[in-house]
Amino acid sequence: MAPDANPHQATVADGTPDPETEAAGGGLVDWAYVLHQLRSSPLTIVGLSLITLVLFTMAAAPWIAPYDPNRIDLTSRLAPPSLKHWMGTDQIGRDLFSRIIWGSRVSVSIGFAIVGISMLIGTVTGAFSGLVGGRTDSIIMRFMDVLLSFPSFVMAMALAAALGPDLINAMLAIAVVRIPFYVRLARGQALSLRERPYVKAAVTFGATRMQIVRRHVVPNAMAPIIVQSTLDIGSAILTAAALSFIGLGAQPPTAEWGAMVSAGRDYLLDQWWYATFPGLAILLTAVGFNLLGDGLRDILDPKLRAR
């Protein structure tokens, strides 16, 4: 639930940006403070480490994966975890450890893409809506209220089913249903920023609405949006994996974590490793983003810091 910021209550302590330090759109990071916060929050460090590990895995997949993820080896089908195959093999002898490593590129990137798309469209729409105000604003917001009342997973599922089972379609379907969250968040920020002297000054100097949105509102509204999007990446990854699990996302032979769990389901009782390890990868990645998001919120939102 994105709080609707009241422009009259907006202060620095609310987590809204300080115009003095931020009017230029950057340079607000107090690294000593960030380090202090990190040191006092072990869970954030765990989150940061997990995400670093995931990003490293994605980048270094070709070098750290012991096998080609699609190499079929019928002589070692459904082999249990061993020194040769750390996480065992699947029904056609592909090395699961290598497939999980390569799968990170698919499963995690899709999370970034979903959040990127919905954040971009949502933030611009919300900032515009808040700045323009009046009828346009109310129409946009009523429309968003309606969209927010849809059960998002069910809608994403219906959309993905209609578009056809495919990873890109699943990504688009999930991104679309997430847009309203960012619209509300950015609009609240825009409403409070609209009243700031430097935005009023920009209006006086004849800046267009798009210029104000791009130069002032978007950069200054970023802090809460970054927190929200970090928390969202975890759930976007989970949703994408879930769609893949029910057959609406990645299709074989793509190494994707949700689809791998789904394939491993048929061998659950005898080959426990098959479904277990890809699911563990999803879990650890989602935990990482959620912990990091919580940590970022504590660092960026001074109001919550007190608690």
Partner: peptide, 13 residues
């Protein structure tokens, strides 16, 4: 955190 990060289908399995 683990609760909200766990894939439902995997936990069920």
């Amino acid at each position: 955190v683990v609760g909200i990060s766990t894939p439902a289908f995997w936990l069920g399995l």
